[in-house]
């Protein structure tokens, strides 16, 4: 295609020249939108940010972020994924990819585009054809044992966030234990205990994003694919079978 490449396609081919695309995945209700709102609030002075939200129904998450007033409204775009939020970030990323490319073109140059997945289950992760890196958000209210369960997002996302740690006492969760479990499931990869109400933890998250952005610009960040869920064993009356999600 040579000289006829559009801006967006050249951008796709050379990661360092376009924005850092950062996915935010995790189960429903763990606080993905709030994490994005916190990042925008804390970083909007130093970075040019765009946001793509994914919703099953209409544009609920985009409206939440617009109401938070953390970014100019036109920099928040909603993608309606229908009944398959996981498909939009993994099997068929076209709608999201176009939304990201549009934002990058309309507000060039952007430093970072955050893509929020429609909440799904523990197995949903972003395809590397859509994002350069991804956060996987869990929360203490979902139960302290979730981190131990593993799966591609918990195991291999670039960062796992254990959110709402200010609620830990109320739901009987031992935060250091949960962080420890997650760290073990991730074989030492980073885990961050976060509360939107504790500024220091938000600053830690921002620092991680800044570091990632620097590595993206210098070309030293290598996108990794958490991958689909590993084949796993289902027990049944006949002894069980090996189940592979393809």
């Amino acid at each position: 295609m040579g000289s006829e490449n559009t801006v967006e396609e050249q951008g796709t081919d050379t990661p360092g020249a376009r924005s850092l695309r950062l996915g935010v995945a995790g189960p429903v209700g763990t606080g993905k939108s709030s994490v994005i709102a916190a990042l925008c609030r804390a970083l909007s002075e130093e970075m040019r940010i765009g946001v793509v939200t994914n919703d099953i129904y209409t544009d609920e998450d985009a409206r939440f972020l617009k109401a938070e007033g953390v970014l100019p409204e036109e920099r928040i775009r909603a993608v309606e994924t229908g009944a398959c939020p996981h498909t939009a970030i993994r099997d068929d990323v076209t709608m999201n990819l176009l939304a990201v490319e549009d934002l990058e073109q309309d507000f060039a140059p952007l430093d970072i585009v955050l893509v929020e997945s429609g909440g799904d289950n523990l197995t949903a992760t972003f395809s590397p054809s859509l994002v350069d890196a991804q956060l996987f958000v869990l929360d203490v209210a979902g139960g302290g044992d979730v981190a131990r369960k593993g799966g591609p997002g918990i195991g291999r996302a670039d960062l796992v966030v254990v959110n709402k740690v200010d609620l830990a006492d109320h739901v009987g969760v031992d935060v250091p234990q949960m962080v420890d479990d997650a760290t073990r499931a991730r074989e030492g990869a980073p885990v961050l205990a976060l509360s939107g109400k504790r500024w220091g933890t938000v600053e830690q998250l921002c620092e991680w994003v800044r570091g990632l952005h620097r590595r993206h610009l210098s070309g030293t960040h290598v996108p990794t694919d958490p991958g689909p869920m590993a084949p796993h064993f289902h027990a049944d009356e006949e002894g069980g079978y090996l189940h592979s999600h393809v």
Binding site: T81, G82, C84, T87, A88, D91, D92, T94, M95
Partner: peptide
């Protein structure tokens, strides 16, 4: 229908 072009979001 599995061609990744976003058709799955429509009925």
């Amino acid at each position: 229908g599995r061609l990744p072009a976003g058709g799955y979001a429509h009925s």
